[in-house]
Nucleic acid binder design. Structure first.
Lengths: 150, 150
DNA sequence: ATTTCTGCAAACTGTTTGCATCGTA
DNA sequence: TACGATGCAAACAGTTTGCAGAAAT
């Protein structure tokens, strides 16, 4: 945990940004809730518990900054809200998501399943891939059981 | 073209919706600009050229309806705007996109490159896939050339 | 002293909703 | 006549921006 904060601090410093208390509080929330896919508002409320003076605009600005530095990835599951997801340590590519259309849960796939597909795209379409977004929409394990029961 | 309109008309009727003049005008714009990835506003302006009385709300309502019937797919490339993309005739799955981070162009991949990945997800994660969204971000053919030149 | 960052409020953008009206079964 | 569909304007939600003050270098 602490070493990840340090790491992020270094990445900020490398681009001559500071890890201010507000930014640190935001990053800590992201670390603590790494499994979740929080919206800016969610993050704001959680940060506020630790640092009540913080403003929503600062959270947005911090998230934008972290996005630019590729420390977090901004995703959008189709509801109008942006969500922010910490990159896994050392991950080159953004991980994939499984969104359940029944219960709304979001599961993560950390394995890169797109290596082959990416090669095809680079060869056949001459497109130089830098990043990707892959989301599957469907029914999660739990909801499949429930559907069978009912 | 006309047979596709007819087809959509039938799909609407099957769910007891009507293909009103406004809806038809909207669908025609989508057909004419199938290659593009238009926002609601874009579509509104184009529809307005043919049917100046139409309101933006109607366009939104039409697009929502077409989305529900899976005639169009709603996508979001990360700028805050929803874009609407006609499903290819008979396509089961949504096609993929290549978004160029230099020039913003969007290319489509109609081939389903995810068959294998989907199998893996269904087997290893017990997740029943219904649909997917796959977008690659990177540098398109044209922009690669330009970058080399400069 | 200069520059960066913050908090607040106001502004903005894309989208949705309420409601009176219109069109058609 | 009844009901879905429309146009308009107002409402809304999420996000961004301008600005004056605070913090850090």
């Amino acid at each position: 945990m602490e070493h990840r904060i340090d790491n992020i601090k270094k990445q900020l410093h490398a681009q001559s940004y500071k890890l201010t208390p507000q930014r640190e509080a935001t990053v800590r929330v992201l670390l603590e809730r790494e499994e979740d896919h929080l919206s800016a508002e969610d993050i704001f409320l959680l940060v506020k518990e630790k640092a009540p003076e913080i403003g929503l605009a600062t959270v947005y600005r911090t998230l934008e900054l972290l996005s630019e530095l590729k420390i977090v990835d901004k995703i959008n599951f189709g509801d109008g809200v942006s969500r922010y997801d910490l990159r896994k340590e050392g991950a080159e590519h953004f991980h994939h998501h499984l969104v359940c259309i029944e219960c709304g849960s979001v599961e993560e796939i950390v394995e890169d399943l797109l290596k082959d597909v990416e090669k095809i795209v680079e060869n056949d379409w001459q497109f130089q891939v830098k990043d990707h977004r892959l989301t599957f929409h469907g029914v999660c394990k739990q909801c499949q059981k429930i559907t069978i029961k009912s």
